[in-house]
Design a protein around this nucleic acid. Structure first.
Lengths: 203, 203
DNA sequence: GGATCCGTAACTCTTTCGAGTGACCCTCGT
DNA sequence: ACGAGGGTCACTCGAAAGAGTTACGGATCC
């Protein structure tokens, strides 16, 4: 019984995807979900062979759902759906273990081909993307200090302010900053904060 | 039947809070939840007189939960729990309609006093905090352009890069940046990105 | 028919960031 | 015993960012 789970918060997109996937040869059942929590709940009782999941969803986001799904079941096959603007999220999801991704404006044919491919070959996965950060499928590990600095940034503090707060010199804060940028693959502090949120490292 | 719902993801904190609240005169029932989703689910069938909720929780965060709760039921009374570092989140939650907040290291007496106060007077609310952004209980309204700029920032792009991408001059991007900083109450782009995430304006 | 907000753009000026580098000490694992 | 990684600090330097200000056309709201 080959089944596919489609998850997207937009009803229109969800229905369109459901219909497209249903036409892939071999697919016998397509179920749907609207958010990450639902995917996780459903997965507990009803494991599909493949999951198509949007990167940006309300509540539990795609990246975090991938992480939880794979920690519960490392064999889960997941393909991310995305729009052009989500490149970071896609990269993170793939790094976290998603098998690949599809542009939402990919043609129906591409979609079907990718799904068919993923179903036919259980080991199929995108050529590992050259990610600046973690290739390892887990969130980059930041040290306690680095997280403190990242949190300071997320509260709008300057390096000097963070230093004063943590009783460090500004130069030291900068060193931590550079290191955490590198770990996260961030190009500047705003990016680092964004990645911190996407990875769930800060709130 | 006076009942209070306590929500915190830490089992220790949850239990401690539960016990403290249970000793407040008049409180007959204390229920618990571990995250925002659970609060929302529970609220649908079982409305407590007061909710104590942590600002930072896995999955659906405190601020967003407050928003959803109040849009479902504007009469819900919510007090946020927080640690010192969450001041932004608290401010946002109060702006979103939470009645007040409590430091997690507040004394048991303070906690009980605040809960008793909130239960005794249904209109009780903290003196409206002087928020730099929205006082209105809704997310600051950013224009489409401002959101595009904010998203660019969250992807680590410089103002010049954002300008190229949107066919704008760098100066124009800076103007949008300054305006959105002001609306969000952000002190720099990293802070703006963080607030964007906390408000759910970007992902 | 002003007032207000938005989108666009340019100008100056100061502060901050971030890259690059080097260095010292400590701890932990091998 | 050595290296790797972490935490600390310092120095330079160029590139951004952000504040402040001005401006003009269009939309929208009283």
């Amino acid at each position: 019984m080959t089944s596919v789970l489609v998850c997207d918060d937009s009803p229109l997109a969800r229905e369109a995807l459901r219909r497209a996937v249903a036409t892939v040869p071999g697919v016998e059942r397509v179920t749907t979900a609207t958010n990450g929590e639902e995917v996780l709940r459903r997965w507990a009782t009803d494991r599909s062979d493949l999951i198509l999941m949007d990167v940006r969803m309300p509540g539990l986001g795609g990246v975090e759902t991938v992480r939880r799904l794979l920690s519960a079941d490392p064999g889960a096959r997941i393909i991310m759906l995305t729009v052009a603007e989500d490149l970071d999220g896609v990269a993170l999801a793939v790094a976290a273990g998603a098998r690949g991704y599809l542009h939402k404006d990919a043609s129906r044919a591409e979609l079907r081909a990718t799904v068919a491919q993923a179903l036919a070959d259980p080991t199929w996965r995108l050529a590992p993307r050259r990610l600046r950060a973690a290739e390892m499928g887990a969130a980059p590990t930041l040290t306690a200090r680095e997280i403190q600095v990242l949190e300071g940034m997320s509260h709008g503090r300057s390096n000097a302010e963070i230093g004063r707060e943590l009783f460090l010199s500004e130069d030291t804060v900068k060193t931590h900053a550079r290191r955490l940028f590198k770990k996260l693959g961030a190009s500047d502090r705003a990016h680092a904060v964004a990645l911190g949120f996407r990875w769930g490292l800060v709130r």
